[in-house]
Amino acid sequence: MKMSGLKLKNVIQRSEFAVIAITIILFVVLATGSDIFFNVNNLNSLQTSIAPSALVAFGMMLLLILGVFDLSVGATMALVGISVSTLLASGVSVPLAVLGGFGIGVLVGFVNGILVGVVGINPLIATIGIKFMVQGLAYMRMSNLYQVHPDFPASFTILGTGKLFGIYYQFLFMIVILIILSIFLKNNGIGRRLYYIGGNRNASRLMGFNSKRMIIIIYIVIGLLAAAAAIFSIARYGNANRYLGSGIEMTAIISCVLGGASLSGGKGTAMGALFGVIFMSLMTNFFNLFEVSSTWQDVVVGAILIIVVAADGYLTLKKNKELGKI
């Protein structure tokens, strides 16, 4: 693992290279082609759309490295958002309400982890089941609240709207998490262990690695990150609605795969996840600023995803062919 990263070939071969390259291109296009890209409002909305999405994508990336994923993460965000606003509305103090939100994240993550890690249910089925349940609970609470917009205490709202040197707290928080995760995944034994387990589950068992425990822990981590994302979002917008987190599980998975992860596990980086998210946000921005109907955005994103997945498969096949493996 020498830092031979400066060699061009190595840079290109890194799995997150493609997404970083197209993100930069997109950035340049937006920066030169649009007058309002550097507008404060636009940058603000970019920051607050990137930060929560990135937090969720980090969690998803950790899971994908392990070879699993979580489709219930959007529902978890909805439940956390609604629960925290209910708690605040009923006069619970801010720290306690936030703690309650994290508690829900931990609980959902723990159940997912048990089902996938210990019981051995396929993550697709397990987390869809949990998604149904969590979503049902969230909407149930929602229908009782019925469009109540609680007045959040200022000490809570600041979490979503506060800035330091023009940068949102939530964005800074995301950057801190990014740094921690990057170091963790690269230079920490436990972080590396995610790659061992995701790369070869059976061999990991033989090495005596506890993959069950790891899966539970990482599901709890994504539960926590989803809770944080939900709290930042409701604090920013001043209310919790049922669309909070809706569909974010797919966006997160797509961002991660664009950023170099694979469903078969064993690869991916936090930086890749972030650039995947930035790319997706810039795409939205692109469609807004150039006033293209946003309905086309899905078409473009989906097509890019298919191309990325196909290209990854093609390159793997080619490599194996060159090695004479197939």
């Binding site: 469903l263 994103v301 989906g302 995803l305 298919i306 997945v309 096949l317």
Partner: peptide, 15 residues
Amino acid sequence: FHVSSMMVTIGMMTV
């Protein structure tokens, strides 16, 4: 291309 059908069809789902 020997790739995961889940991933490809999530892409197609979006498209």
